[in-house]
Simulated assay, not measured.
Amino acid sequence: MEDLNSEDFTAGAVFHVGEDDAGKRVDAFLSQALSVSRSRAQKILETTTVNGQFVKAKITLKVDDEVVVPPFEIDSEAPVGATPEELERAPEVPILYEDDDMMVIVKPRGVTVHVGAGETGATLVDILRAQGKALSSVGPAGRAGIVHRLDKDTSGVMLVAKTDAAHWNLAAQFEARQIEKHYIAIVNGVPTPRGRIEAAIDRSHTNRKKMTVTPGGRPSITEYEVLKSWAKFALLDINLLTGRTHQIRAHLTYLHHPLAGDSLYGGFHRALTCAPSERASEAINALNGQALHAYTIAFAHPTTGEPMRFEAPLPAGFNELVEALDEAT
C-alpha cells in the first residue's frame, strides 16, 4: 500500500522495541515515537497493543516487544490553517493539470504536505485553499485532498483529489500499485548501472527520525538506473514500486550511496567533502535538503479511466548542481 504517512503514523504503525527504548513507559514511548503529547499518547494507547495485549500506560517495555498502533485521527486540537503571514511567505504551487475531479501539482521543496506534529508554516493544503481550489473531504480537514505525499524537502509531481469519489479511486490505484512514479536523484558515489533493491524497512531504533533496512520491516522495492555519472556522484532514475516512509533515502543509504544533500542520512557532509569545485559545494548547500525530485507520475483518470502521464520540471537548484558537476568534469 502507498505509505500515506511520511513524517507521522496516523495510518497506523508497528514498532519493535530496541535496547534504547527498553525500560521506558509505554505512553512515554508512544509520545516520542509518534511525536504527540503524553496525554494524546495515552488516548492512542487505548487501542494500541503490546505483544497482542492491551496494556496500561505505566507498564515498561522490554527489548523485542511489538507495539502495534492502529490508525488514529490527527489531534482535534491541532491547528488547521496557516496564518496570513505564513501564506504570504509560502511559494505558489504550480498546477500541471486540473479538472472537476482532480489536480496534478508540483510540490515545492520545503513545503509540508499537510498539518502534522511539530510542523509549522503553510502546508500544501493551506496553499491550495488560499489559491481557491476545491479539495476532497475524505479524512481530517488538515489533510483535505491528499491521496499520497512527498517528504518536506522532496519536490515534484503529486496528485490531489477535488472530490471524494476521485479521492477513493486514486487511493485504490495506489493501494493496487497501479500508479507508476519515477524520481530523479543525485547520489554520492556511482552505483552499478542498474539495480533492484528488495529490502524491508522499519523505524530506526537509534534515531526515530530515520528509517533503516532491517529484517521484519515492511517489504520495500526500489529500482534504479544510472542516467549519468561523474567521478564521485551519479544521476539516477528511480522507480518506486512500494511507497514506504523515506524508502528511497533508506534504500540508497543501505547501498552506501546516500542522496547528495541529505543531512539525516549522511549524504550532506559526504557530498561537501567530495564536491569537485566551489560551485558544486555552493550548489549542495543551496539545495537545503536531499537531491530528490518526483518527476513523473502515470495513472488512470479517476472518473474516465483515461491513461494520464505528467512530468514535473527539475527545480533550478537541482539543475545548478548538475551543471556544476558537468563543469568540473
Score class of each variant (00 low, 15 high):
90 A>V: 13
119 E>Q: 13
131 Q>S: 11
126 D>C: 08
75 D>V: 04
295 Y>P: 01
69 V>G: 01
171 A>Q: 11
206 T>I: 13
29 F>D: 08
260 A>I: 05
60 T>N: 06
161 A>T: 02
156 G>M: 08
190 V>G: 05
30 L>N: 11
168 W>Y: 03
61 L>G: 04
285 N>T: 06
290 Q>Y: 01
228 K>A: 08
284 I>G: 03
289 G>F: 13
143 R>C: 05
198 E>H: 11
266 G>W: 05
305 G>H: 09
271 A>E: 05
318 F>K: 01
73 E>V: 14
251 H>S: 10
305 G>N: 11
297 I>R: 03
200 A>K: 00
190 V>H: 05
200 A>L: 01
282 E>G: 01
24 K>H: 06
243 G>P: 09
65 D>G: 07
142 G>V: 07
233 F>N: 06
47 T>G: 02
50 V>S: 05
36 V>T: 10
143 R>E: 14
181 K>I: 07
140 P>H: 03
261 G>Q: 05
123 T>P: 10
253 T>K: 11
213 V>L: 03
42 Q>M: 15
312 A>D: 08
49 T>M: 06
199 A>M: 12
327 E>G: 00
146 I>L: 08
34 L>C: 14
259 L>I: 09
197 I>K: 10
188 N>E: 06
285 N>Y: 06
99 D>Y: 08
178 Q>Y: 08
136 S>A: 15
181 K>N: 01
11 A>V: 08
76 S>T: 13
137 S>L: 11
128 L>S: 04
283 A>K: 01
270 R>T: 15
209 K>Y: 12
276 P>E: 09
64 D>N: 15
204 S>M: 12
215 P>M: 02
275 A>I: 05
157 V>K: 02
70 P>M: 10
59 I>H: 03
176 A>M: 11
108 P>W: 07
13 A>Q: 10
120 T>G: 13
98 E>L: 02
319 N>V: 07
326 D>S: 06
88 E>H: 14
64 D>M: 10
172 A>F: 03
216 G>T: 14
14 V>F: 01
268 F>G: 03
26 V>G: 08
117 A>E: 06
303 T>L: 02
67 V>D: 00
144 A>L: 07
197 I>C: 11
121 G>A: 09
323 E>D: 14
78 A>H: 09
245 T>V: 02
122 A>S: 14
121 G>T: 12
185 A>Q: 07
116 G>D: 12
323 E>M: 11
144 A>W: 09
183 Y>M: 10
73 E>Y: 11
205 H>A: 14
302 P>E: 02
285 N>A: 01
220 S>Y: 13
128 L>V: 05
215 P>C: 01
225 E>T: 15
264 L>P: 03
255 L>K: 14
113 V>H: 02
203 R>A: 06
316 A>F: 09
202 D>V: 02
293 H>P: 06
208 R>T: 00
293 H>K: 09
195 G>P: 10
105 I>T: 12
188 N>L: 04
289 G>S: 08
314 L>P: 04
129 R>W: 14
144 A>F: 10
188 N>C: 15
278 E>Q: 13
246 H>S: 03
53 Q>L: 13
175 E>C: 07
109 R>M: 03
110 G>E: 07
65 D>Y: 00
84 P>G: 01
146 I>R: 09
248 I>Y: 03
26 V>S: 03
329 T>L: 05
117 A>Q: 07
190 V>K: 03
187 V>I: 06
222 T>C: 05
83 T>Y: 04
